[in-house]
């Protein structure tokens, strides 16, 4: 790793005065005076170790007081501080009792060691895992290069890549927890250096590659995530999450789905269905949601919803298998609701 200084931030305001770049901006256009945030540090150190960013200063926001609290209220829902670790979320009984799909997603994320280190803020703000993007030898569009190596129909190693919304970049968002958060209509609370605090629905927090090739979220340099908030689920809301991996112990998702359904008897009143590892950002399948709305939760309707979800799929040369994979996990997750 190149040399950098370490700034131990004492407050949100203190941290925001020090920072001048997001890791994404630095990845897109490298400078020699970047001061970037790190919380759990897993993603940031990965980039620094690969030599893809060389920050002058790393601002440690991990120890800022007040960002490590989980609270639940039956009326207002769940609030998770951005410095809460994935391990703390995994052992939280309110999450397990009221947000099952989120609990399941956390338990399938990373390793026990990484869950003890990773924070939720860092998890949703981490960059994608495309091996070309992560390689110093490949200057792809995301790093202001002139091509997408993964897309190439013969040489592109794209078996893990996106099958939906893959027109600009074919990477996958790395946070499978975001799949579940978005299905629960979570919002991200962000404070900027002027002291303005805003709440952004997760659907609007992520930025598609078509909108901005350099970024995966709307986060700006002088902004910090303070918490993630989830509305309280109504009494008849049930949820389920499935992640398909190539290795059971732990692995990056090949495809994952979170289903949150408000039921009325065995009928789906409203559905929130989000796919992970399908598109460059977590993908809300409006098609599947519409297919389930006001329908009985049964095998025929679940299969129809899965088919509808995949109607927008445009696989690359080596990831056609993901279409049946998604059909299978989407229908299975819907049927788990009953």
């Amino acid at each position: 790793m190149n040399k950098f200084s370490w700034y131990e931030a004492t407050s949100i305001e203190d941290a925001l005065q020090q920072v001048n770049k997001t890791v994404s901006e630095e990845l897109y256009q490298s400078t020699n005076n970047a001061a970037v945030f790190k919380s759990g540090g897993i993603d940031v150190f990965d980039w620094v170790k690969e030599g893809l960013i060389n920050p002058q200063k790393i601002i440690n926001i991990r120890n800022i007081p007040g960002l490590d609290v989980i609270s639940y209220d039956a009326k207002d829902g769940l609030r998770i501080g951005s410095n809460v670790t994935l391990a703390e979320m995994a052992s939280n009984s309110d999450i397990k009792n009221h947000y099952l799909a989120l609990h399941q997603a956390i338990n399938h994320a990373a390793t026990p060691q990484l869950r003890n280190m990773s924070t939720l803020g860092g998890n949703i703000a981490q960059r994608n895992r495309c091996w070309y993007f992560r390689s110093a030898d490949h200057q792809c569009f995301r790093k202001s290069g002139d091509r997408c190596f993964a897309r190439h129909s013969e040489t592109g190693e794209n078996e893990n890549h996106a099958i939906i919304d893959n027109g600009s970049c074919v990477s996958l968002h790395a946070s499978s927890i975001s799949t579940a958060l978005m299905a629960f209509n979570a919002s991200v609370v962000i404070v900027n250096s002027k002291g303005e605090k805003k709440k952004v629905l997760m659907d609007d927090f992520f930025v598609s590659a078509g909108q901005d090739i350099a970024m995966e979220t709307i986060l700006q340099a002088k902004e910090i995530i303070t918490e993630i908030v989830l509305p309280a689920p109504s009494k008849n809301t049930k949820s389920y999450y499935i992640k398909q991996v190539a290795r059971e112990s732990y692995d990056w998702s090949l495809g994952d789905v979170a289903v949150v359904i408000e039921t009325s008897g065995d009928t789906c009143k409203s559905a929130s269905i989000v796919l992970g590892a399908a598109a460059p950002v977590p993908y809300r399948s409006v098609q599947a949601q519409q297919a389930m709305e006001k329908k009985s939760i049964n095998n025929t309707n679940a299969m129809a919803a899965a088919e509808a979800a995949m109607s927008v799929a445009r696989p690359l040369s080596k990831n056609g298998y993901k279409v049946p994979l998604f059909k299978s996990i989407i229908s299975e997750a819907i049927l788990k609701i009953t």
Binding site: S5, Y7, A9, S11, D14, A15, E196, K198
Partner: peptide, 28 residues
């Protein structure tokens, strides 16, 4: 827009309070 502005003075916990700067170490 997709976002809701919650407050414009997130830092104004007490106007008397002064910002405490953190400590910097390294790069050496």
């Amino acid at each position: 827009a997709g976002s809701v502005l919650l407050t414009t003075n997130a830092f104004a916990f007490g106007s008397e309070e002064k910002l405490t700067a953190g400590k910097e170490f390294g790069p050496g």
